[in-house]
Amino acid sequence: MKEDTILVALSLEDSKNYAAIVEKYERQLLRYLLRISDISREEGEDLLQNVFLKAYQNLRDFDTSLKFSSWIYRIAHNEAISAWRRRSSRGEEINLESMEATQLLQFTLDIPIAIDEKFLAEFVHKILEKIPQKYREVLVLRYLESKDYSEISDILCCPMGSVATLVSRAKKIFCSKTEKADFSKFL
């Protein structure tokens, strides 16, 4: 966190230093954008570029009492929502990593998973696609991005109590969709 604050200060002194922030967050933010939106990788990269440009313009608004990652995730979240509103939803592939998909299923269903992770990733992806955006996003942040409730609260700009409620509902929805889905199609 301290490192980020220093990077912000350095970027304000010289824009060239901003490259360090971009390099540090580009991979995780792109992954996050792809997970929460139905967009292609190219669209994701364009979106990511906007995220970093917006973050740069608003660098002086960064509140050092927050985590920089929460702040920049919030900008990414807002950009994703704006993009979501601009375009009609398209079913692009989300590159869920197998291991993370397994974790999501384990967290939500609380069962040991010992099946082919590649198929499992596809299965989780299909389930996530069917879940409303706000629930999908908390599941992604909590279980795929490993953010705690306080960080999710800062990213989504909602109270911690609401985050807990959203996560709980999202898990229930995920479970019910999983139960209804024909799992054998993915095996």
Binding site: S15, K16, Y18, A19, V22, E23, E26, R27, L30, E45, L48, Q49, F52, L53, Y56
Partner: peptide, 14 residues
Amino acid sequence: MPELSKKILDKIKS
């Protein structure tokens, strides 16, 4: 991806 930061810095400059 590696050139993203370069792209952003170029855009900031231009």
